[in-house]
């Protein structure tokens, strides 16, 4: 396990470094996507509904965007984790396939760390007490098992069907609008009921409670997201392990 983690970290670090190697803005590219979306939504909302936003709305929005972006990126890269490393998988016998899935998820974690630094900078700018950021790891840790399980599931299924890429592209767009990334939802509404089944909803809600309100979210929220994570890990890792020996022949 230690060897798998060490190599995953090394591959993630290399891939993170190489992705924008040679570009003028370097790692800034990791931030420009979420930042552009942030300003667009802020501008459109300000123009369409002037004066309706709460003072901490920019931080509310940025936490929503970065949280969702981490989820989307982790799953998108996990789907290709095995296919993209076909050369390695067929020519080296001492690497566990789990390494490649973990490496892609870790790479998303690295870029998410930069996004969280951006959130901290905006908290300072908008006068939101920045100490709340110290509680962020708690919300990240309760969400991470879900990412891990979903990542392993998608990595295994992604080898068998190239359709998963396209399905995920459409599903993630749909999920972006269903999740309260740029709007608020009230309990008792249909959208709220739908979101009770949405793991990203819990992630962004817990993050916002901890960072903006500096209050501890209801315990049931932790229970549900941890339960979803446990289920995702059980199903995802079980399927991956069952198919692991076949994957090298399929890529």
């Amino acid at each position: 396990m230690k060897d798998i983690l060490r190599l995953s970290f090394s591959l993630a670090k290399t891939s993170f470094k190489l992705r924008n190697e040679g570009s003028y803005l370097g790692i800034m590219w990791y931030l420009l996507g979420p930042l552009a979306l942030f300003f667009i939504i802020l501008f459109v909302k300000g123009a369409a509904f002037p004066g309706t936003s709460a003072p901490s709305y920019p931080i509310y929005l940025l936490i929503g965007i970065t949280g969702f972006n981490f989820f989307r990126q982790s799953i998108t890269t996990s789907i290709q984790a095995i296919n993209m490393n076909a050369g390695f998988i067929r020519s080296i016998n001492n690497i566990s396939l789990e390494t490649f899935v973990l490496a892609t998820i870790l790479e998303s974690v690295f870029s998410h760390i930069f996004e969280i630094a951006l959130v901290a900078a905006f908290m300072i700018y908008f006068g939101v007490p920045v100490l709340g950021i110290l509680l962020y790891p708690l919300s990240f840790l309760v969400f991470f098992p879900f990412i891990l399980g979903a990542g392993f599931f998608c990595a295994a299924v992604g080898v068998y069907t190239t359709d998963l890429d396209n399905i995920w592209m459409i599903a993630s767009q749909l999920l972006f609008f269903v999740t309260p990334v740029f709007y608020t939802i009230e309990p008792g509404t249909m959208l709220h009921t739908v979101n009770l089944f949405n793991p990203v909803f819990y992630f962004v809600s817990i993050s916002r409670s901890l960072l903006i309100d500096r209050t501890f979210p209801p315990l049931w929220m932790f229970g549900v997201i941890l339960g979803m994570g446990a289920l995702a890990c059980f199903v995802g890792i079980k399927i991956f392990e069952a198919k692991k020996r076949e994957l090298a022949e399929k890529v």
């Binding site: 060897d3 190599l7 090394s10 591959l11 290399t14 190489l18 040679g22 390695f88 001492n94 690497i95």
Partner: peptide
């Protein structure tokens, strides 16, 4: 099955030696 396993064009020779080493365990 080859000797170019894991080499990355955009890394330096020094970085590549460490990368290939970690791939080889």
């Amino acid at each position: 099955s080859g000797f170019n396993i894991g080499l990355q064009n955009k890394l330096t020779m020094r970085e590549n030696i460490y990368l290939v080493g970690s791939i080889m365990g």
